[in-house]
Design a protein around this nucleic acid. Structure first.
Length: 812
RNA sequence: GCUGAUGUGGCGAAAUUGGUAUACGCACAGCACUCAAAAUGCUGCGAGAAAUCAUGUGGGUUCGAGUCCCACCAUCAGCACCA
């Protein structure tokens, strides 16, 4: 076989030289914006997962180009983040140096893959010309009231003196030193994504995304309707407002629970309970949120000594704290109805708190407690006899009349915490002035540059705080000495808007040109991993909507269509990881077989959306397929042709050709590359069978081979370019249009009609494709086998699905 | 526990969305070429002697079910004291 890695290199150089993949922003053709989630340059190289994600997606982009679109298919790098910083702490290599080196390597590998990217439209989020605009966005969000500061807990390792990411906390301990991780409260920045909760939920209907991903987002947003109810403390000094989806059970409240860290606890707890409360709080601080939410752990809590008054009944109920109540979900306070809630029942049983039945089942029976279904109210005074549904309305209305309750919607979605106590990120553009307070950096002073020379080894102080040069500044308002915010932005902020930047990536004057951004967006097809279903994909939707409301964008959703590629597992069926030692490097395969064989094998051997365990058994078969294509092209060059007629053999071949074009277009559009390649193999087999028949119509033969090369061009770009030139063509195959379907040729020839009797396949009858139902019936009844089956029976029904099947229903 | 996905030959998988189940490959076997092997090409390849039976299992709807409905089993993934 002639195809090899050298073929790849030859054409990569050629394409680069003549700018084949230069994007033309002024093209008259309709735009098609498709991109893959940009890669994170943490490892030094592209891994198999990258290939499986990028190579088929690149083929898709090439296909859209052949279909006549002005395809915009950019690639960039999500370059800030924790791994580069950790690597730096371990090796002493500066994150900027390692990151830039990795990016260069990955770019080279993406070129070796044959990626049709125009690198003039690329972003690297760690470059000042990019993060300047990330910071600009922060400023805009702040001015729009969508960025604010509040206290929030972080994971703290007291031994390493550093804040830990959730990922660095293993079983509640620091991954580096094993010390128990505690919660520490810091003042941090948030984006008000909850303002958009309702729209983020509703607009899921507008987009062509996998249903499972939409469900993840629905759960993440977690809308629930219920009521807010305000309990007063016994002394009347404090309000305790709870959210409940079950106001019908309000008569059964026997205690109230607060999140242990709530500041209200300090104000209401009695002197004699202080010690117990503080001890309990210290225990709670050691727990991760995962622990606190774990169902495995026994429920614990302690009494605060204070009491609250049930606004409906006037009952005095004790106020407890318990770690299963989280400060940032709902109001941070919970009313407990042990008779009708599993968790409250377990808690009340453990601490001997009263359990009061207020709901019976609708058939009037007294079910075993806890009974969590809807039913009929009992022991509820004037509400007795109402159904749960009725009581919810009535009780909420009564509370509202007294000003101690109202109907409300609650979301699980929390505001987006964007502060990171890290070095390798975009500095938060905020200045603190003794006189003026919190001042955002004026737009004209951006970017706030991340200083290179900083001590980022963990020692209890945020890295940027140790740079006097960075920290000390003057207040933009009053000109007095001031200090900068030392935290950096979550990298999800950087990635929440990059698709808006690509079409205008080199614009120094503004974040993007308003006309360009609205012309190119939304992204028509976005491809990336399922693991981003919640975070990245919801943050980007939020940012799009926020920018729209500020008047910059005129669309609502960033990604019209979304595709998730599957995961390639290790040969052992487990997720590939260095620690498991089951990783597979794409490089050696590319070296040995060439990029096209490798990418074709990835597409043919695995379902794109599904992935599966790695297995290279079939890769040789792809090499074999390439050799057969080469042989066919060679044959076409050599053969003279000995016929000009269009007989049945030619008609059949031409029909196959048209079927192939049609099927492959549909398959590639749907990211079903495995079947697309199968169809191309069928065409190749068909052409081979034709030429082995002896009689060759050169024109038909040429037409079919050229078609085969064209439909394979997006899938095996280097190899097809080579074969195209072997045929004597001088221009690139990648400037060819996707072959057109000839309807006449598609309809020609004979068809085989499967014949069923009573739903069972009994015969196949070959007929001309343009016969009517009656004519076909007639032909079928002449068939020997069919005739025998219907001989002594009555035909009750004849069902004919044109071109597909004939079913005769017979009765004896 | 909840939610979602998946289940088809020895293997990867396909099936125009209710219309010939197993396309296209891998592996395997036989034949041709060869002194021989490799490579290549051709042929066969779900089970069964056959009638028939087969898409995780059991029902149902239909002229017709891998596909739709009900129940169940298995595997994988995500979420979870969410008030």
């Amino acid at each position: 076989m002639n195809y090899s890695k050298a073929t790849d290199q030859k054409w990569q150089e050629e394409w680069k030289k003549n700018g084949l993949y230069k994007y033309n922003p002024n093209s008259e053709k309709p735009k098609y914006y498709t991109m893959e989630m940009f890669s994170y340059p943490s490892g030094a190289k592209l891994h198999l997962g990258h290939w499986f994600n990028f190579a088929p997606a690149d083929s898709f982009a090439r296909f859209k180009k052949m279909q006549g679109y002005n395809v915009f298919h950019p690639m960039g790098f999500d370059a800030f983040g924790l791994p580069a910083e950790n690597y730096a702490i371990k090796t002493g290599i500066h994150p900027e140096d390692s990151t830039m080196k990795n990016i260069e390597t990955m770019k080279r590998q993406l070129a070796e893959m044959g990626g049709s990217y125009d690198w003039d439209y690329s972003v690297q989020t760690c470059m000042p010309n990019y993060y300047k605009w990330t910071q600009w966005l922060f400023v805009k969000l702040y001015k729009a009231g969508l960025a604010y500061k509040k206290e929030a807990p972080v994971n703290w390792c007291d031994s390493c003196k550093t804040v830990l990411a959730n990922e660095q906390v293993i079983d509640g301990c620091c991954e580096r030193c094993g010390t128990v991780v505690v919660k520490k409260k810091l003042s941090q920045w948030f984006f008000k994504i909850t303002d958009y909760a309702e729209e983020l939920l509703n607009d899921l209907d507008k987009i062509d995304w996998p249903e499972s991903t939409k469900k993840v987002q629905q759960n993440w947003i977690g809308r629930s309707t219920g009521s807010e109810v305000t309990f007063k403390t016994e002394d009347g000094k404090h309000d305790i407002t709870v959210f409940t989806t079950r106001p019908d059970t309000l008569n059964g409240v026997t205690y109230v629970v607060l999140a242990p860290e709530s500041s209200l606890v300090d104000e209401i707890m009695t002197e004699d309970r202080k010690k117990a409360v503080e001890e309990y709080r210290a225990e709670t601080a050691k727990l991760t949120e995962i622990d606190r939410l774990s169902t495995e752990r026994p429920k614990t809590g302690t009494f605060t000594g204070a009491y609250a008054i049930n606004p409906l009944t006037g009952d005095k109920v004790p106020i407890w704290i318990a770690d299963y109540v989280l400060e940032d979900y709902g109001t941070g306070f919970v009313m407990a109805v042990p008779a009708h809630d599993e968790r409250d029942f377990a808690f009340a049983s453990k601490y001997n708190l009263p359990i009061k039945r207020v709901i019976n089942s609708k058939d009037g029976k007294e079910p075993e407690l806890p009974y969590c279904e809807y039913g009929v109210l009992v022991n509820s005074g004037k509400y007795d006899g109402l159904t749960s549904e009725e009581a919810k309305e009535k009780i909420t209305a009564d509370l509202e009349a007294q000003g101690v309750g109202k109907k409300t919607v609650n979301y699980r979605l929390k505001d987006w915490l964007v502060s990171r106590q890290r070095y390798w990120g975009a500095p938060i553009p905020v200045i603190y002035c003794d006189d003026c307070g919190t001042v955002v950096v004026p737009e004209e002073d951006l970017p706030v540059k991340l200083p290179y020379d900083v001590e980022f080894k963990p020692d209890g102080v945020s890295p940027l705080k140790k740079s006097k040069e960075f920290m000390n500044c003057t207040c933009p308002k009053c000109g007095k000495p001031a200090t900068r915010e030392a935290d950096t932005l979550d990298t999800f902020v950087c990635s929440s808007w990059y698709q808006l930047r690509y079409p205008d990536a080199n614009n120094d004057k503004e974040i993007f040109n308003k006309e360009t951004v609205n012309k190119m967006n939304p992204v028509d097809c976005y491809v990336g991993g399922k693991e981003h279903a919640a975070m990245h994909l919801i943050y980007t939707r939020f940012m799009t909507k926020a920018l729209r409301d500020m008047g910059y964008l005129n669309f609502d959703e960033p990604f019209s269509k979304l595709i998730h590629q599957g995961l390639i597992l290790g040969p052992d069926g487990n997720k590939m990881s260095k620690s498991k030692g089951n990783t597979v490097s794409p490089d050696e395969y590319v070296e040995k077989y060439g990029s096209d064989v490798f990418r074709m094998y990835l597409m043919f051997g695995f379902e794109y959306r599904k992935g599966g365990p790695w297995d290279d058994k079939g890769i040789e078969a792809m090499t074999k397929y390439f050799a057969r294509v080469e042989a066919l092209v060679q044959k076409l060059k050599e053969v003279e042709g000995n016929s000009t007629e269009i007989s049945l053999a030619e008609e059949d071949l031409l029909r196959l050709k048209n079927q192939t074009i049609k099927a492959m277009a549909k398959n590639i559009e749907d990211f079903q590359f495995n079947t697309a390649i199968a169809r191309s193999m069928e065409l190749l087999n068909g052409i081979n069978a034709y030429i082995n028949g002896g009689k060759i119509n050169k024109e038909v033969f040429t037409n079919c081979v050229e078609t085969l090369l064209k439909v394979l061009a997006p899938l095996a770009p280097h190899f097809m370019e080579e074969e195209w030139h072997v045929l004597g063509k001088t221009s690139s195959i990648h400037n060819e249009a996707w072959p057109e379907i000839n309807e006449k040729e598609l309809q020609g020839g004979n068809i085989v009609i499967p014949v069923q009797v009573n739903g069972k396949l009994k015969a196949q009858v070959e007929v001309s494709s343009n016969l009517s139902k009656e004519e076909i019936l007639e032909a079928v009844k002449k068939d020997e086998k069919v005739a025998r089956l219907i001989e002594n029976n009555e035909i009750v029904k004849e069902i004919y699905v044109p071109g597909k099947i004939l079913n005769l229903v017979v009765k004896k």
